[in-house]
Amino acid sequence: MNARLQALSDAGVSIWLDDLSRERLASGNLAALVAESNVVGVTTNPTIFAAALANGERYAEQVAQLKAEGADVDRTIFELTTTDVQQACDVLRPVYDATDGVDGRVSIEVDPGAARDTDATVELAQKLWARVDRPNLLIKIPATEEGLPAIAATIARGISVNVTLIFALERYRAVMDAYLYGLEQAAAEGRDLSTIHSVASFFISRVDSEVDGRLPEDSPLRGKAGLANARLAYAAYAEVFGSERFATLAQKGARPQRPLWASTGVKSPDLPDTLYLSDLVVAGTVNTVPEKTLQAFADHGEVRGDTVTGTEAESQQVIDQLAEAGIGYDEVVKKLEDEGLQKFDDSWAELVQTVSDALDEA
């Protein structure tokens, strides 16, 4: 094991790879990352699958088979992506077993076209859960206003969820509330709460990209908004999951919904490439990273102990100073959510086109 990555794991941070492809699976690359680089989970999204399909010949046989069966584009996407995720779940299953279900998780996202439709999201979540049929699956549901009741309903059905696209602290609190409400409903229906897991994906680098683009180049606030937002989110997490409400559920076997730091590939050349790992170290969290960021941390990343707990006051000060500079928090996070949903839609359209082309060529 790499000593730097091991130190990150020892500090209580679960390292999940933000990528998946059939090439990674077939070549043994994913298994090697699990065995040698402390990777204990995988996250996916339509962009990742579009890239995998565009650059991978290993899908050709299944595409040809699906075409022969008369499958349309939607069914082909469903079958290709769930096959990859099912196989990844099998690679990660020993980790899942060894950690009592905490890690060893693989995420797959509902069609982003349903992000504003509660019922459609719940239906898709159930369909994906049934098709992959692995206990270490997580269904990714965007944290839109319409997504909140879908998250609660999906959890209530005993399906584990990765809540994605969270930027705003107020929305994050609503996400945690939806999780607890779903657990309460599941308990009322007699479900085993210990089998239900969830993470809440709080996006980091996009906050800095948006905020820093509005700041002067010499501003001392550059590169600070994303970390401040995440650290305030952790303070909210500690409050909610330290509450009597959760304690009552925990007595019935419930697990906390762990914070997951997403979008942790640094986008600015002016910031350290391992910033969103080294400065978001706190036990009981997940950091999902692109392979490039994983390699960077393995090469020169530093673990300086807990860099989150006790930072609430200084983090709030950053948000306040940004407001004084004319950068309003609410406007920034609303814009980022809207752009995030558009990026999901664009990525899905790219995936549809890629699969359509593959079917034409099969």
Rank of each mutant, 00 (worst) to 15 (best):
A54D: 08
A32F: 12
L80D: 01
R24K: 15
D360P: 05
D72A: 08
L260Y: 09
E312G: 10
S198R: 00
L221D: 03
D192H: 09
T121E: 01
A325R: 10
A35N: 05
P220I: 02
L336N: 07
A68L: 14
D90E: 15
G28Q: 11
S201M: 12
V282S: 07
Q65K: 15
R134N: 09
T248G: 15
L66A: 05
T274R: 00
I196Q: 05
P269E: 11
R116P: 08
P256Y: 00
L227M: 02
R258G: 02
Q353W: 03
A247Q: 11
D19S: 12
T121D: 01
L30E: 11
T311P: 02
Y329W: 12
D270E: 15
Q251K: 15
V281P: 02
Q353V: 06
A174K: 13
G70H: 11
A188E: 15
G226V: 02
V281T: 07
L271H: 09
L165K: 02
A3S: 14
S201Q: 12
A114D: 13
L336Q: 09
G56T: 07
G326W: 01
E189G: 15
A114L: 14
G223M: 00
Q86Y: 14
E239H: 04
V333Y: 04
A51R: 14
R116W: 14
G70R: 11
A188N: 11
A88L: 08
I166Y: 06
E361K: 14
A235H: 08
Y234K: 05
M1S: 13
V207Y: 06
V286H: 08
D338I: 13
S278Y: 03
A125F: 03
V286D: 07
V40L: 13
V355R: 00
A174W: 04
L30A: 10
D10T: 14
G41Q: 08
S14Q: 06
A115H: 07
A188W: 13
S160Y: 05
D18A: 02
